[in-house]
């Protein structure tokens, strides 16, 4: 009996924990469900769904390419361009901030902590809100979308870079320091060669996210394929919505495939 007592105690404690957790969850769901007012599905829901499905089955193929004005190919190219320039902008900012935020490169923790603070500030800003702000600065269009993506990705990319640097082997840096290399030489020949594959992999990963974001930026007027898409949705021309979404899916899949193949080769 004496032996099983602590076991029993632990079991009882665990059961208590589970019961409280369960009650909290139930309360949470009651709160959540009671708050959502369900006014029934509107009558148009089914016809609209049917139209959407019809639009996907017989997409508006004439939208793929038209010699003048907006078409799918131009929209997708613009989306790709937004993602490419955006990632370049993020890299330029994220490398110095990432190195700054890395714990093992700074002499005091105050320096790396301040770098980390800047990164988490950038990370909490949603791309879409940034896009709305940049639209005010440079006007609606792809440029605003690119700036939003570029600035918005700094936080995540910088964090990934900093983690990569923190996980590296200190040996080469120490040996360069031992033979009299200065800080810059330590960075260039000790740190960079080690972390480069990780940096490239993180950048490619973020590029995949950028592609998806770039496709939605147009929904709020920041260029790319989202602009014709939101017009098509608002105009209920579902065959056009169909072809645009098919286009987005294909391009994002291709980018993902290339990127993951590259990442596998690098790491």
């Amino acid at each position: 009996m004496n032996q099983s007592d602590p076991l029993k105690k632990a079991r009882r404690k665990r059961r208590w924990k589970f019961t409280t957790l369960f009650i909290i969850l139930i309360a949470l769901y009651i709160w959540a469900f009671s708050g959502i007012e369900f006014r029934g599905i509107q009558e148009t829901a089914w016809p609209v769904t049917k139209n959407i499905i019809h639009g996907f089955i017989s997409p508006d193929l004439s939208f793929i390419y038209s010699p003048d004005g907006e078409d799918l190919i131009r929209g997708l190219l613009e989306t790709l361009a937004i993602a490419v320039v955006g990632i370049m902008l993020s890299i330029i900012f994220a490398i110095p901030i990432g190195l700054w935020a890395a714990k093992n490169l700074s002499s005091t923790s105050l320096i790396s902590q301040s770098g980390k603070g800047i990164l988490s500030f950038f990370r909490t800003m949603p791309d879409i809100i940034l896009a709305l702000l940049f639209i005010k600065v440079v006007g609606p269009g792809a440029y605003a979308g690119m700036l939003a993506l570029g600035i918005g990705a700094i936080g995540m990319l910088g964090k990934l870079y900093a983690e990569e640097v923190e996980a590296m082997d200190e040996g080469p840096v120490e040996s360069i320091a031992a033979v009299g290399g200065n800080k810059l030489q330590q960075l260039a020949f000790g740190v960079i060669p080690q972390v480069l594959p990780g940096f490239i992999s993180a950048t490619l990963y973020r590029f995949e996210i950028n592609m998806r974001s770039a496709a939605t930026l147009g929904l709020i007027g920041a260029g790319g394929i989202g602009t014709p898409l939101i017009f098509a949705i608002q105009g209920r021309s579902w065959d056009r919505v169909g072809i645009i979404i098919i286009g987005i899916v294909i391009v994002v899949l291709i980018v993902d495939l290339i990127s993951s193949a590259l990442r596998k080769r690098i790491v």
Partner: peptide, 27 residues
Amino acid sequence: NILRTIPDLLLAAIFAAILGFSPIAGI
């Protein structure tokens, strides 16, 4: 994989068209 390529905002725009402008579409 195909499902994962569709961005959240895009799904929301489509379901807002189907289900009306309400939190249900968002859910």
